[in-house]
Simulated assay, not measured.
Amino acid sequence: MSLFSRLQFYTTVNHLRDLPDTRAEIAFAGRSNAGKSSAINTLANHTRLAFVSKTPGRTQHINYFSFGDEAYLVDLPGYGYAQVPVAVRAHWEKLLGQYLQTRGPLKGLVLLMDSRHPMKDLDVQMLQWFLPTGKPVHVVLTKADKLTRQQQVLALNSVRKALAEHSNCSVQLFSSLKKTGVEELEKAICDWIKID
């Protein structure tokens, strides 16, 4: 049985003081239009587990999904959406930065980027917040079905080159539409949370 098929919504949090006690967490982060909710739904083989919206920026809290065994997938607020009020955006940024830099049970970061527009400034900022922790990062290049095979290879290679100096970073292609890259992503994080 797939690790992700166990996923169930657990709780939503808007302040660090409200974070639950957990054994292991895997954070999913990405720009507001990177396809993060679609990716979570694809992994779980569930159409409505994470809310998918045509309006970017709808995930405004930290959402916890349980794998069981006190391990959680943590869906972080999407970043980079200009239509969000400044005060809300400032709250998100503080929440994201502090969570990524200080959360003990956090075992690794899955950073989702649109394969057509990877390594934007805010993606780089996210990496700069997280890489000093020494924990692993797995970059998932979403919407790969929108690229030709040659464009996919170019995108993959350019991100690998950008992250070459960081031995704790890995990169893959992913498509929610075609359901490609699911096994690779599952394999990449299975060791992080050590579920039997």
Rank of each mutant, 00 (worst) to 15 (best):
R31H: 11
D75A: 07
A44P: 01
L95T: 11
L73S: 10
V140Y: 02
V159E: 02
V88F: 04
M119Y: 04
W192F: 11
P136Y: 12
L49R: 09
F65T: 05
T11K: 14
R17M: 03
R31S: 08
S66P: 04
L156Q: 11
Q83C: 05
T47S: 14
A82G: 03
K146T: 15
H61R: 12
Y72E: 05
R89A: 14
N41I: 00
A90D: 12
E70Y: 02
P56R: 07
V88K: 10
F9V: 10
V88D: 14
I26Y: 03
R116W: 00
F174W: 04
A71W: 00
K146W: 00
A34G: 04
A82C: 02
G78R: 00
I195Q: 03
N157M: 10
H138S: 06
L43G: 08
Q151D: 09
H117G: 01
F28W: 11
G68Y: 09
V52T: 15
T133Y: 08
N45P: 00
V74F: 07
P56E: 12
I193Q: 02
L96T: 12
Q83E: 11
K107A: 15
A34P: 05
S167M: 05
F174R: 02
E165A: 11
G181M: 07
E183V: 11
A188P: 11
K120W: 02
E93Q: 14
A71G: 12
K161A: 14
V84T: 15
T102D: 13
A155T: 10
V88W: 00
L95K: 09
L16S: 09
G104D: 14
R149F: 03
A24G: 12
G35Y: 11
C190M: 10
G68V: 08
T180D: 10
Q101E: 15
S66E: 12
Q98D: 15
K54Y: 01
G134Y: 02
F67N: 06
K194V: 04
T59C: 10
V171S: 12
R103E: 07
L16N: 04
I189L: 14
Q125R: 13
L49Y: 07
D121T: 13
W192S: 04
L156F: 06
A155Y: 00
L147H: 08
A29P: 03
D121F: 01
Q150E: 15
A29E: 01
R116N: 05
Q8V: 11
S167N: 08
E186R: 03
D21F: 08
T47E: 13
S176C: 07
L19W: 07
D121W: 01
L127E: 07
S115F: 07
S175V: 03
A164Y: 06
A24Y: 13
Q83M: 02
D75K: 09
Y79C: 07
K54M: 04
P56I: 08
F51M: 13
V124R: 14
L73P: 09
D191C: 06
M1A: 14
